[in-house]
């Protein structure tokens, strides 16, 4: 089965999640046969690297209408690429771009979509994909019955594996029509590492007592090579920017390491982080519910524990890893 991958780009760079999606497609194609074709809708740094993770070919559309994020046009482009490559499977990332593009593509192709896949398809009996449901409290094995199979992959859930291919970048033309969205302004965050793509996250809550105390959180994050996040009350009180809010109403993340400092662990917060591989909780209250979901914990005062952690991280020279 040939596979199309949406290589999402932003600000002229290929996203890390696009490499994950490419590796997902390549691991599937190696098992079942078929070619992997990545489609990028802009010129971007890193397109040639898609071959390293298994893309047999990279298609690139040059259309000024795609300079801003136009999900409908991207869905049309993916449909055209799937037809051109006789692909029956399309893989995207379940990030903010995939969440917008994948359902449109499914409706245009009458395809079956599994969003937020956490494992490769199982084809023992049909085409079954495992995904997280109930905000990370369970998994569903979902069978796709439609001819076109669309999978959006949960960021950080599939290990990127190198599988070098001699892939060429070819230009691709498709009739996309006009977009009915007029983008008038972009406000990009200054961070290089979107929270959903970070391997490690250091997060803090009300226990930090005020925005002026975030220096130790940022420093610990820097020493660990982690992104920073926060709980809902912290973002509601404007101690931290809203895009850092993780939890049910904020962003859901799935890092390898989640360190929660001064966060009690309400169920709404857990819904956004419970799929993290390892959870560390630092809290003064030994009865904080978060300890029940944690792998490691320290019962102690953040203002005492965190500076010591920073010192230890410096001694271990973790930042250079």
């Amino acid at each position: 089965m040939n596979v199309i991958v949406y290589a999402n780009t932003n600000q002229n760079k290929v996203h890390k999640s696009a490499f994950e999606a490419t590796s997902y497609a390549s691991q599937f194609a190696s098992k079942h046969g078929g070619k992997v074709t990545a489609l990028a809708t802009a010129e971007a740094e890193g397109l040639e690297e898609l071959g390293k993770y298994g893309a047999d070919k990279v298609l690139q559309i040059n259309d000024s209408k795609l300079a801003d994020f136009k999900p409908e046009l991207i869905a049309k482009a993916l449909k055209a690429a799937a037809e051109a490559e006789q692909a029956e499977v399309v893989v995207l990332s379940h990030d903010l771009s995939g969440k917008s593009v994948a359902p449109i593509l499914a409706a245009l192709t009458k395809g079956g979509l599994v969003s937020g896949a956490v494992d490769l398809p199982n084809t023992d009996d049909g085409f079954v994909v495992k995904k997280a449901v109930f905000s990370g409290k369970a998994f569903a094995h979902t069978k796709i019955n439609a001819e076109m199979k669309i999978i959006s992959v949960m960021p950080n859930s599939i290990e990127k594996k190198e599988n070098s291919k001699e892939s060429n970048i070819e230009s691709f033309d498709a009739a996309l029509g006009d977009s009915r969205l007029n983008v008038v302004e972009q406000k990009m965050e200054s961070t290089d590492l979107p929270l959903t793509e970070a391997d490690k996250v250091v997060s803090a809550g009300r226990g930090l007592k005020g925005p002026e105390n975030w220096e130790i959180i940022e420093e610990l994050a820097k020493e660990l090579g982690a992104a920073t996040a926060c709980s809902r009350p912290v973002s509601d009180m404007d101690w931290r920017p809203h895009h850092e809010h993780v939890g049910q109403t904020g962003v859901a993340i799935r890092p390898n390491l989640y360190i929660a400092i001064g966060i009690s662990g309400a169920i709404q917060h857990l819904a956004g982080v419970n799929q993290s591989k390892v959870i560390v909780v630092i809290n003064t209250d030994p009865e904080a519910p978060f300890f029940k979901s944690a792998d490691y914990g320290i019962v102690g005062d953040a203002f005492d524990v965190v500076p010591k952690l920073i010192e230890a991280a410096k001694e271990m020279n973790l930042a250079s890893n």
Binding site: S97, N182, V183, V184, Q186, K187, M188, E189
Partner: peptide, 9 residues
């Protein structure tokens, strides 16, 4: 959007 916000008409 991934990495920020957009204002759209």
């Amino acid at each position: 959007i991934q990495g920020g916000k957009e204002v759209i008409e």
